[in-house]
């Protein structure tokens, strides 16, 4: 490695770690969004993963890898418990329920002083998370998502997203597919929470609230959910942008908000859609008969 590259990595290692971590979360959300699940549970899953893993490494002296796995499994278990009753409901109720879950976890973290340190949080967490851990996790997740997209299961998921009545009629078990995706999302977010906790020396209840959930949702939406690289692009962009806008702390929030708005308004399929050739006007009009069709709940 050349000296310049080494210096670059040393100066920017924090931001690189953050980009990788957020990209990992973005793919967790991508899995949920790919079947129309607007999940606000990310903060809750990450908090579970973080506190569980920190407890295992600091109190139980367990190995780091085991702690991350335990955090991921706890996230997946929580997703199962929420998903089983709630995924049968309409989409807006799902969003409310996942929001409530994140709030409940935050309030519990705030008040369970013995385990979470309450409002003060936990300090002096060993910095076990290495950049290559994050990179490896991200590569594995992207590979799995890519493989899934190209398979018949990916085709079924795409059908659920566009028209779940058609998917059911063609024999797709919509409920099971959506539950599985949500559980996978919980697994990835739980692991990400564990990795995040061992990256910053500190966790507090404010780290994993609603803001975290909304941010996580914005990565794949901004980057675009129709392309494999969308969540990655969205996460890296959203992570680097505040750093690039550091010259003015007041302007920063405004510019960030304006950019998000611009992407939503002008690139509704996400930022990556600028790369795709535009379809001729009028093409999409005839085929999408689904908009007018009555929705039938499963």
């Amino acid at each position: 490695m050349t000296a310049a590259a080494a210096q670059f990595l040393a100066s920017y290692s924090n931001i690189i770690d953050l980009c990788l971590l957020n990209a990992l979360v973005a793919y967790g959300l991508y899995l949920a969004l790919s079947a129309n699940m607007f999940s606000l549970a990310t903060g809750g899953f990450m908090a579970l993963g973080a506190y569980c893993s920190v407890y295992l490494t600091m109190e139980m002296s367990q190995p780091f890898a085991l702690a991350v796995l335990a955090g991921a499994v706890l996230g997946a278990a929580a997703a199962t418990l929420i998903g089983l009753p709630v995924l049968r409901l309409r989409g807006d109720y799902f969003m409310l329920a996942t929001f409530a879950f994140t709030e409940v976890i935050r309030v519990v973290a705030l008040n369970w002083d013995d385990l979470t340190g309450g409002a003060l949080g936990i300090v002096n967490i060993p910095r076990d998370t290495q950049t290559w851990h994050l990179a490896l996790a991200l590569v594995v997740v992207i590979y799995l998502v890519h493989t899934l997209r190209g398979s018949y299961l990916g085709r079924a998921i795409a059908a659920i997203k566009q028209d779940d009545v058609v998917a059911q009629t063609m024999g797709v078990d919509v409920f099971t597919v959506r539950l599985s995706l949500f559980v996978a999302s919980g697994f990835i977010c739980g692991a990400a929470g564990a990795l995040a906790a061992h990256l910053n020396y500190f966790v507090g209840p404010g780290d994993f609230g609603l803001v975290r959930s909304v941010d996580a949702l914005s990565y794949p939406i901004l980057g675009g959910v129709n392309a494999l690289a969308g969540p990655l692009v969205g996460a890296v962009f959203t992570t680097i942008l505040p750093e690039a806008l550091r010259f003015s702390s007041q302007l920063r929030e405004i510019l960030l908000g304006a950019l998000v708005l611009a992407v939503v308004l002008y690139l509704p399929d996400g930022a990556l859609s600028v790369l795709k050739p535009r379809r001729r006007a009028g093409n999409s009009g005839g085929g999408k008969a689904t908009a007018a069709a009555p929705r039938v709940s499963p």
Binding site: A159, V166, T169, R279, G286, A289, A292, A293
Partner: peptide
Amino acid sequence: ARTFQNIRLLADQ
């Protein structure tokens, strides 16, 4: 198996 009166295909695929 069935077809739909108001055609329901995934238009962009």
